[in-house]
Amino acid sequence: MKIAVDIMGGDFAPEAIVEGVAMAATNLPKDVQLVLIGQQRVIETLLPKYTTEPLSNIEIVHAEDVIEMGEHPTKALSQKPNSSIGVGFKLLKEKQVDAFCSAGNTGAMHVGALFSIKAIEGVMRPCIAGFVPQLGGGHAVMLDIGANADCKPEMLAQFGEIGSVYAQATFGIENPRVALMNIGSEEQKGSLVAQAAYQLLKESRRINFVGNIEGNDMFFDKADVIVTDGFTGNALFKLGESIYALTKKRGISDEFLDKTNYESVGGSPIVGVNGNVIIAHGISSALAIKNMIGLAIRQVQSDAYNKIAQMLS
């Protein structure tokens, strides 16, 4: 298994990315190799700072250009094919790597996935999934958390279906509970889009739909899959992440609240494309990068995207 990592993407790249890679490389399964994509001279200079031993499970692929965080995604990808993101997607498309991870330009990662490995046939809009810790243990999958700010009811219903397959494949949940994020638990609550999505989810024979949940249900084991549009999902997810920063400022330490720290999972997969793509926070630390690599390994092992394709076929 080969996991490709964009070394040049992120607010604290390349140092934090290389440090996170070194942390991950010391405890990888024997069949996993890390492919570091970026400026070779930079990578070779930084690696000795974070590891005293030569790492046989690391390979370097040179990519001279860098897509900056503020660049226009489509324009940057077309003008910089030799960027670390461009090269990463080329390797993924050619199946030279099994997953591609980056803390770089989120828009470029999303556009790159759509134009290289493309959406799974039948998927209306690929989405970004986030992991919401649950009081009973484990995580619920929330989708979308930012790729599609405006969603039609049919898209939300499909998020429920592909999210259910993803949760089953990745977390081993036999019959995932799918819920729609709404402003009330009653069937008739919410916007016209939410009401229409509710009916489609209710009628779907592919999922175990348990109805609406509200924002205050997020952490309380009400669902395994939480369906929402990317605007609402992004706001809720980032509010959840802020809990950790708030508790630290208040001097509070709690095992569950620590799981709301973005570093604990390390990244978010793009669900609905023909391959494994993981997007990390731009502010990712070395620990976040280490955990992002772990998430990528689990996603490859789950074969979730092929299972989604089989469901839709």
Rank of each mutant, 00 (worst) to 15 (best):
Q301K: 15
I145S: 09
D224M: 00
R298N: 15
S204Y: 09
S56C: 07
L46N: 14
S78T: 06
S56M: 14
C127V: 13
I7F: 05
K90F: 03
Q158S: 05
T74N: 01
P126C: 05
V61E: 14
G70D: 14
G136I: 00
R250V: 07
K238Y: 05
K259C: 12
T51Y: 10
T26W: 05
I117F: 01
V21A: 01
G282P: 13
V5A: 01
D224W: 01
S268W: 07
K49C: 11
V271F: 10
M142D: 08
G211E: 12
A167D: 07
N208C: 09
L55A: 07
G160W: 04
G138V: 03
I293D: 04
L192W: 03
V265D: 10
C101Q: 09
N276M: 05
F12T: 06
K118G: 05
V193F: 00
N27M: 11
G275A: 08
D221N: 14
G163W: 03
R41E: 15
G130S: 04
A296N: 11
I297A: 06
G10P: 06
F89W: 01
S78Q: 09
D254F: 07
N27C: 13
N306S: 07
D65A: 12
I60N: 00
F12V: 07
F256V: 10
C127E: 11
Q195T: 05
G122N: 01
V165L: 01
V42F: 04
S302P: 12
Q195M: 05
L295A: 07
K259H: 12
K222Q: 10
D254V: 04
R206E: 06
G137D: 08
A194G: 04
E203H: 15
E71Q: 12
I60Q: 05
V42K: 08
D31R: 07
G251D: 08
M1G: 13
G122R: 00
G137M: 03
Y244V: 06
N82Y: 15
A223I: 08
F171T: 06
G275I: 05
E121K: 15
I213N: 03
A196R: 14
G104S: 08
L180C: 01
G86E: 05
V5F: 01
R205N: 15
F131C: 04
Q40R: 15
